[in-house]
Write a protein that binds this DNA or RNA. Sequence first.
DNA 1: CGCTGATATGTACGATCGTACGCATCATGG
DNA 2: CCATGATGCGTACGATCGTACATATCAGCG
Lengths: 191, 191
Amino acid sequence: MAGDGGGRAARSRRHDPQRRDRIVAACLEVIAEHGVAGTSHRRVAAAADVPLGSMTYHFSGMDELLRAAFGRFASSVAERFERRLAAAATAADARQAVASIIVGEVFGSRRDLVLTHELYTLAAREPAFRAVTNAWMRRSRAALERHFDTTTALMLDALIEGLTIHEALGTQPRDPALVRLAVDRLAGQPE
Amino acid sequence: MAGDGGGRAARSRRHDPQRRDRIVAACLEVIAEHGVAGTSHRRVAAAADVPLGSMTYHFSGMDELLRAAFGRFASSVAERFERRLAAAATAADARQAVASIIVGEVFGSRRDLVLTHELYTLAAREPAFRAVTNAWMRRSRAALERHFDTTTALMLDALIEGLTIHEALGTQPRDPALVRLAVDRLAGQPE
DNA sequence: CGCTGATATGTACGATCGTACGCATCATGG
DNA sequence: CCATGATGCGTACGATCGTACATATCAGCG
């Protein structure tokens, strides 16, 4: 449609190293807004302000594009997760960090919640995307295991996922005190 | 393609009251296999062995079809959930029931896991589907609250969701003992 | 300054999509 | 037994999809 390429100034684009990254970023925006179901080469190209031809030039197909996009997304979330948890010194700090992660520091935006579920859905069906989620989970778990034993880390990870879902679906406001209580019940008494 | 309608015997189909149900059931199968992204009127019609025209006749559009399908799915899962939990007499029974639900009695099949996440993903973006998930959650929570206090019921619900995700994504086998331990930590000591 | 190979782009094609709509088919009242 | 309205079906249409490919564009070199 309009702006598909004709409207763009005919500036030099050769050797634009950010091009691929811009496409990936735009892809995440499109997914967040329209879902994987509504994501097309054309929409992503329009969002990234690149010609349609760039899609097949930079990516072999939709699958590679989606993998790149979700790979970047998972990595960025995992990094925030690690940073937040690395800042904790004591065990109490760590529990507080986990609670704050749940309450909103990491999964603050609806955008991220939506993207997370889109990824999970893809991974639940296609093993290729499970590599992405597995790497993500491994990093999260490793970060947790710096503060908690393996068993507790697993439980906390599950609790985070579960409360995240409720956050994404629920219209009810989440209760920080309740989150804190749940974390303490799971991780409060080391054994 | 083949069997789109031509291949079917020209028997009378008038007043086929199961028709709509069959379409809904077929829709769930298609979603489980191809995802919401890959679900089309044509594919569902083929799976249900009904002519394409029946789609627009029985449903105003894709959205109504999806809502009907996921409504039926959520209701069926919630019913199994309630039954399993209603069978519990003592508090210990209830904790065991929750653990067994997680381990696989309710979410036993990959099909159900996939469908659940497809629904969550839809609900995360479109409020119309949140009505379905809210009703489901309300039923689950009510079933839990027959055995646990409100706070604990919320936590257990979240734990179920979280461990379910790990089950759907993880290649690792879930550990029944660990699940039991997590349930007991959350619900073991009433306060 | 002209040549050239690598790089990026615009367009065209075949497939598939959702949906509208005219026609066939049957249950029913006379 | 026939006329008739309600019910279900097959098909055709416009839109949109992913992708291939010929063409345009530029950096680097002689």
